[in-house]
């Protein structure tokens, strides 16, 4: 009877997916496909580690050199922390490979889950829920990979510079570029880590966007009919 009363009223079109639930579901999906998630995450990790290592490496190197030129002849002339062009190209290439890798992983993950997507839509999920779930999944991977990549990249840059400085902690850390480089640009080690994290997430989302939208657009029946 209650149902009948409800059915007489106009259809309320409120379907919800609280953000916390979406995060929980995405997290579960990643957990259950743990090794696949790890591989995708590794892709991002390497890309970001390379990016961070190149920028931070240059910044630290410039800082050390600036410090030395200052002490030697107090002329800080050759201290530009500019990244050599070939390295810029390498970084860009590695990031592109990174996006392609993520796209590929997400495409597979979407194709494999057509039926799941169709089922969710039958249960009342809106297109944007599906998009949200996939983007969340990939940005979680992106974030994890980017944080790890930033740490790895920074450590690598440090080691390289320490070696160049003859393992003298004092020379490297005396005027360590925590926040800005020698020119005062915000390319110190800390902001570069932050940049790395943001770029990693952005790459993950860019890579996943196409497959996610494609998945969401499928009519529920067709999505379920697909045999993979």
């Amino acid at each position: 009877m209650e149902q009948q009363a409800q059915s007489d009223s106009a259809i309320r079109s409120q379907i919800r997916l609280p953000f916390s639930e979406a995060v929980r579901i995405s997290f579960q999906s990643l957990k259950i496909r743990f090794w696949r998630s790890i591989i995708t995450t590794l892709g991002i990790l390497f890309g970001i580690a390379f990016l961070v290592a190149v920028i931070s490496g240059n910044t630290i190197e410039a800082a050390v050199q600036a410090d030395e030129t200052q002490t030697v002849d107090s002329l800080a002339q050759e201290a530009e922390p500019s990244i050599p062009p070939h390295q810029v190209w390498l970084v860009i290439m590695s990031l592109i490979v990174c996006v392609v890798g993520i796209s590929n992983a997400m495409l597979m993950s979407v194709t494999e889950r057509f039926r799941e997507i169709g089922t969710m839509k039958c249960l009342g999920a809106l297109d944007r829920f599906v998009v949200l779930l996939f983007l969340l999944e990939s940005s979680l991977q992106g974030l994890a990979g980017a944080i790890a990549g930033s740490i790895v990249g920074t450590l690598f840059a440090l080691l390289v510079n320490l070696r160049a400085a003859g393992w003298s902690l004092w020379r490297v850390f005396y005027q360590f570029p925590w926040f800005t480089d020698v020119n005062g640009a915000p390319l110190g080690v800390a902001p570069v880590i932050l940049i790395g994290c943001l770029v990693g997430m952005a790459l993950a989302v860019i890579g996943a966007a196409g497959p996610a939208f494609r998945a969401a657009k499928m009519p529920p029946v067709e999505a379920m009919r697909v045999e993979v």
Binding site: I11, I15, C122, L123, G124, A125
Partner: peptide, 14 residues
């Protein structure tokens, strides 16, 4: 019905 209303029906009525 709109997409949202259809989703609502699928969720609550079916």
């Amino acid at each position: 019905l709109t997409m949202e209303q259809l989703a609502w029906i699928r969720c609550n009525r079916m």
